[in-house]
Simulated scan of single mutants.
Amino acid sequence: MIDRPPIGKVIRSLRRELNLTQNELASRCEITSQYLSLLELGRVNVSLDTLLVIAAQFERPLSSILLEAETLMAAMSPKRKKRKPAA
Rank of each mutant, 00 (worst) to 15 (best):
R4H: 04
P6L: 06
P6M: 08
P6Q: 00
P6K: 06
P6G: 00
I7E: 01
G8F: 02
I11C: 04
L14K: 13
L14Q: 08
R15V: 01
R15P: 02
R16A: 12
E17I: 06
L18F: 10
T21H: 08
N23H: 06
N23T: 09
N23Q: 14
A26E: 10
C29V: 08
E30V: 13
E30R: 15
E30W: 13
I31R: 01
Q34P: 09
Q34I: 14
Y35F: 13
L36R: 08
S37N: 14
L38S: 05
E40W: 07
E40Q: 09
L41W: 11
V44C: 03
S47R: 13
S47H: 12
T50L: 01
L51D: 04
L51F: 04
I54C: 04
I54G: 07
A55Y: 02
A56E: 12
Q57G: 04
Q57L: 05
F58E: 04
E59F: 10
P61M: 02
L62A: 08
L62W: 01
L62M: 09
S63Y: 02
S63Q: 12
S64H: 10
L66R: 03
L66D: 01
L67A: 12
E68G: 00
E68F: 01
A69N: 11
L72D: 09
M73P: 00
A74H: 11
A74K: 12
A75E: 14
S77K: 14
P78Y: 10
K79Y: 10
K79A: 13
R80D: 02
K81T: 14
K82R: 14
K82V: 04
R83N: 04
R83K: 11
K84F: 01
K84V: 06
A86Q: 14
